[in-house]
Design a protein around this nucleic acid. Structure first.
Lengths: 357, 357
DNA sequence: CTGAAAGCGCTTACAG
DNA sequence: CTGAAAGCGCTTACAG
């Protein structure tokens, strides 16, 4: 690739003159500028962004660390992140955090060496290890964490307002006459804890509780929830509705019900959380809470860019942003078997948001 | 971030000495080295990778251009790509090609400015525009294109051996007694064309053809195929099996069948192509062809790295690599209604590869 | 073993 | 309007 020095030689001027001409600075003779521009064009000159990064102290690069890029939730976040970064002229350096840690390569070392301007952390599948947290602390540029909060949270955070989502689900199910409600929860992540608490609270207000036998933890996604749902649904006494931690857990529950010969939603209502594309494509389509996942990614970028631009003088306080949700009623929920409502509420089955919370 | 110069000042030595000490070069007094290492450690020194990139002409960065990162196929590729890059010590600069083009920002300009060592191109959803191709030609470093070939292909390519996959599907379906076969094809991409041709040919060898009424094009993914499948399945005479371009098209067909009250696989067998995670989680689980998608991504990286390391002297010929596939028989296919085989072949329903082609 | 010099590809004062 | 000089953070001969 041609350099300014080479252009300077060709045009018989000095490098600073080339720099000024190409940088559209005023004090250059129009004719000289033309000559220089023409040569640059001809040889397809590209300014070296690495140099610019060194000199300005701004690489216009944001690192994004994910666990698995093929996790549909993370992929949705990424779509928003990429959009936001693009709008702000930043580029995205993508890392698999687990992979680096597994190899004993410190991800923040790489990020530091590359002088990225900030870091977006996609939700780890589990509460991160102490090692992970310690490493985060050594990064002296803005960080935004997406979706999950950590115990001793002092990070910028963008996620979802989980509580109201669960409340909307409870309202929806109880309006359908469900009283026998089961729960597949994930208490290894903050969203799981919040949702579980919200569920218990919302049900309690209606005088309802979830029997131990119908409440089971899931950690992994599909396969694990398939096993746990099978365990719940194989009992003599079954719940009429199953509230699931997220859409993937709901898919596991759906598969378990299907394989047990149960009909969803006739025999069992199922709810998810997230509103991934699969919620729309599976059959029966999934009643779930829309988290507007790409929007979460977009906001994460906006917050990060704000922090980057504030630099050292900005308030060092970390911000927490939770985006609102909406219940999306589809076909995986129906009046409880035997309830008075049964066979009367088909009109509620629309594949669009019912309410904004 | 502390620099070598600052370390040099603190340790009262010259910058080259610091460089040698930190670079583990021999000719440094052990005591001097110790002093330097200690200070570096203490101030959390990180060598500036930008400088290294400039000096070595190798940024150890590969650009990956995708259309939508939240496309599950692309995400699976990415998982393999990230793994491969990590193994080879490269980092990944991720771009959304469409986004850049839409904004009139030339992606290769950015890539050029950042001096990436190579480019991996994830499959565009449609045959790329002339503009896209022209831009590609101006990039003078190795490029590997994944999954789709282009008309005037002279690029390095890693994808799937599509033909045998289709042949395996045909064999499987006809063994199940299917003679009335429908087809949802996508002839806007190279894989779609190859698969469609392979299907026609394989059926012809068995004396079978697909009636016009049962053959429909799909371009988009789920929604489009839902519409097309509904059109096919709403006719008086229905096929007993539907061969779908890929898993997402199969999901659309499955949803259409479900919504029409048809039972899969009793009334209709459906096959996909790819073996995305959804093929395993949907119900009935999808009979499909496993493309080993992450492996495709991994191979793409290996080929790219090879080309990068060869540099200018390597053969400039572009390579084409097609990975083998295997048929995965699950629950979306069954003996054709009315065929002699009906009710006799449950034993074939295993969620694992039947054969390696 | 150590450091002054030159260079990677630029930009930014500053002198002419 | 133009260019010599200094600097960004390094590395690599080379002289001492």
């Amino acid at each position: 690739m041609i350099s300014m020095k080479q252009i300077a030689t060709i045009c018989d001027v000095s490098v600073p003159t080339v720099s000024k001409a190409l940088g559209n600075r005023p004090s250059v003779n129009p004719q000289t500028r033309q000559r220089i521009l023409k040569v640059a064009e001809q040889f397809n000159y590209r300014p070296n962004a690495l140099i610019r990064g060194i000199q300005s102290g701004r690489t216009m690069t944001v690192a994004v660390a994910c666990n698995r890029i093929d996790d549909p939730f993370g992929a949705q976040v990424m779509q928003g992140v990429l959009g936001g970064l693009h709008q702000n002229q930043f580029e995205c350096l993508l890392f698999n955090w687990d992979q680096s840690v597994r190899d004993g390569k410190r991800i923040l070392q790489i990020i530091g060496e590359r002088r990225v301007d900030g870091l977006i952390l996609l939700p780890p599948e589990q509460i991160p290890s102490a090692e992970y947290m310690t490493e985060l602390r050594t990064f002296h540029r803005p960080i935004v964490i997406v979706d999950q909060t950590f115990a001793d949270q002092t990070f910028n955070f963008v996620g979802t307002d989980d509580g109201p989502g669960i409340e909307a689900i409870v309202q929806h199910l109880t309006q359908f006459g469900h009283q026998q409600i089961g729960h597949l929860y994930n208490d290894t992540v903050s969203t799981g804890q919040i949702r579980a608490n919200a569920l218990t609270r919302a049900l309690a207000q209606l005088g309802l509780t979830i029997p131990q036998a119908w409440s089971r933890p899931v950690v992994g996604d599909f396969d694990d929830s398939y096993v746990q749902a099978t365990a719940i649904l194989s009992q003599n006494a079954r719940p009429t509705a199953l509230v699931c931690f997220n859409d993937h857990v709901a898919m596991g529950a759906h598969a378990a019900a299907y394989d047990l010969g149960l009909s969803v939603p006739r025999d069992l209502s199922i709810t998810g959380f997230a509103d991934l594309p699969e919620a729309h494509t599976m059959r029966p389509a999934l009643t779930t809470v829309n988290q507007n996942v790409p929007q979460v990614g977009q906001r994460a970028v906006e917050l990060l860019v704000e922090k980057i631009e504030q630099g050292e003088q900005g308030s060092q306080e970390s911000q927490t942003i939770r985006l609102p949700v909406e219940l999306v009623v589809r076909d995986s929920t129906a009046p409880a078997p035997g309830s008075l409502l049964e066979n009367t509420s088909g009109f509620l089955k629309v594949d669009e948001p019912l309410s904004t919370l």
